[in-house]
């Protein structure tokens, strides 16, 4: 990880216009990604993690979704404002994505070779034969045994973990600067999860790729990430280096999350901690702190206004009235 910022997301807002009202799935998200950094975005289902990352490469289905504001600065360009053709030359090339469910993310009707080669030929302008050799190399790196043989098979001939390896190989085949991994291990069983995470960590470190890792598992980010963003109801409520977040969590939500992790060293009689209440409905959310109904430390001001992000030192920032002077 260096100090060079390669991706700057500023005040990103993605709204979905539905019959029930405007769903503010992402409402003012700001973060920087450094070269070679692994950034974790954690949050519960519906907190806007996936939408944030689909917004980065502008893949929000429109309608109903629309990027309502903000900037995504990459290589001096605002990705939000790029034409579809300019975006295509970045997707899969400079910024690639892997998805949650490897069972359905590969086209079942096309050979692995077809699916990998088309990406390489498209972005690297190689001929098919060289592209295939490159694809075989990538599969080998991703730990697929006998890649020369396996590459001509179809996705259904691979197990779930193997398919995710293929997705990773495909995602990294054009040497992207950024890999966005959207819950890459949630659909896999635990032993395979560990292998896939190790693979992502190992390969991206070797290739110098920055990673945005989306997950709802604190265990995953703890082992993988340099920096963590905690998302709640479409906003980043706390962000900072991994050690800071785990050692000195500031936001009551982060504190609750960390307390909720099952621990081996606790006695078995204790009940597992859980944050009370339900995540808020993000339709027509007022400008309050969305966490206040579930927060033990809620104050009057929390219901009236959303707190600005406050820097508490060591690159650690939090959006909570407990740390901000009420105006």
């Amino acid at each position: 990880m260096t100090e060079e910022i390669i991706l700057q997301v500023q005040d990103l807002k993605t709204y979905f216009h539905t019959d029930e009202g405007i769903v503010k799935a992402v409402d003012g998200v700001t973060f920087d990604l450094h070269k070679g950094e692994t950034l974790g975005i954690v949050g519960e289902s519906g907190s806007g993690k996936s939408v944030t990352n689909l917004s980065i490469i502008n893949m929000i289905p429109n309608p109903p979704g629309k990027i309502a504001g903000g900037q995504v600065m990459y290589a001096g360009k605002d990705l939000v404002k790029l034409t579809i053709n300019e975006l295509r030359s970045i997707r899969g090339n400079k910024i690639s994505m892997i998805f949650q469910d490897p069972m359905t993310s590969l086209n079942p009707y096309l050979r692995i070779s077809t699916q990998m080669i088309e990406t390489i030929v498209l972005h690297q302008k190689l001929d098919k034969k060289t592209a295939k050799a490159k694809a075989i190399d990538m599969l080998k790196l991703a730990g697929i045994p006998a890649p020369e043989k396996r590459i001509d098979q179809y996705p259904h001939q691979f197990s779930g973990g193997m398919r995710q390896r293929v997705m990773i190989a495909m995602g990294l085949s054009c040497n992207p600067e950024i890999l966005i991994a959207d819950e890459p291990t949630s659909a896999l069983d635990v032993t395979i999860q560990a292998q896939i995470l190790d693979l992502i960590k190992d390969l991206t470190a070797r290739l110098g790729t920055a990673v945005i890792l989306i997950t709802h598992s604190l265990g995953v980010v703890a082992g993988m990430c340099d920096t963590i963003c905690v998302m709640y109801a479409g906003r980043i409520v706390e962000r900072g280096p991994t050690t800071e977040i785990f050692d000195k969590p500031k936001h009551p939500y982060t504190q609750g999350l960390i307390k909720s992790v099952p621990r081996l060293d606790k006695t078995s009689g204790d009940r597992l901690y859980s944050i009370r209440g339900q995540p808020p409905n993000v339709i027509d959310l007022p400008d309050c702190c969305p966490f206040y109904p579930r927060c033990d430390k809620a104050m009057d001001v929390c219901k009236r206004k959303y707190p600005l992000s406050k820097d508490v030192g060591n690159g650690h920032a939090v959006s909570c009235w407990l740390y901000t002077e009420a105006k």
Binding site: S89, G92, F99, T104, L122
Partner: peptide
Amino acid sequence: RSDYIRTARAKGLK
């Protein structure tokens, strides 16, 4: 609407 079409678009295909 399937996932593999999302993958194809994320690869930058026309």
